[in-house]
Amino acid sequence: MLTGNRLGAAEREVRVAEIEDLSPRLRRLRLLPCDRAPMAASPGSHLLVRVPGTGRAAAYSLIGDPETMAGYEIVVRRSERPDGVSHRLHGLAVGARLSVSPPRNFFAPAAGARRHLLLSAGIGLTPFLAYARAFPPQVDWHLVQIVRPEERAAFARLTAPFDPARITLLDGRAALCWPDWLDQPLDTHLSACGPAAFLETVCGEAAKAGWVPARVHVERFTAAEGQAFEVRLARSGGRLSVCAGQSLLEALESAGVSVAYLCRGGVCGACRVGVLAGRPEHRDRVLDAEERAGGKVMLACVSRARDDALTLDL
């Protein structure tokens, strides 16, 4: 069995430079690349953070531009599952080493918009901290953040650098009066981040209040979500497992198997791999109906397995 402790092609090693425990379950970490100064990243960017020695990785939003903040700053909520990445990150001390993907952004603020309403619940706040740091002075914005009462202090600390007139912290979702908040000037862009159920409510309420979809933005379903499965590599004889929160491409990369890619989103066709056994679950927009039905090729960046295992021509 290959262990996922090799860095994928584009991943880089970082060390934990600073830790701040904001609450028993919320921890802010500052990560510094081991080899060079961190590069700038746009607001809304996230990193895939991998704990060495495990194949596991999880995505965390950057709470500000790594160049101006002198490192990658993330906030990690310790989840209920004791085996997850967040538990490992909560167990680390300053100086520990991790590997991270380059910053990627699928949730940038609408370019050129003059008014933003930001709605977040819990840890969904993190991308908006980067937004707030990046908005130029002429942009009008307001953030409504839903917190659990016991975490109010922690979130107040994270939002402390910003103009308090732009921030509203509410205890629990019930405290949010939708019609009031959604009554905004027509050119406002609404962005929301938080648990799936919260995002659904946001979209439903916004539609009810007459918001056009082009002005409502929610952090999107990540392609990596789905069931875990096993992969056998026919040519090299290797084996690896793809976790629930990881794409096949990421799993191959962290096992040191290099696969070409361009878009990592199922639209370019670069990461096509041959399938020798097992049934792929196609999630791309490249393959034609025949290839899809044939099941002999798949796109590693988005597609997964319909069964527990696949054998690839790699």
Partner: peptide
């Protein structure tokens, strides 16, 4: 449309 979908998801590390 495919070009648009590609460009929308494009990241700094990808250059085409």
């Amino acid at each position: 449309e495919r070009g648009l979908a590609f460009a929308l998801r494009m990241q700094p590390e990808t250059q085409v």
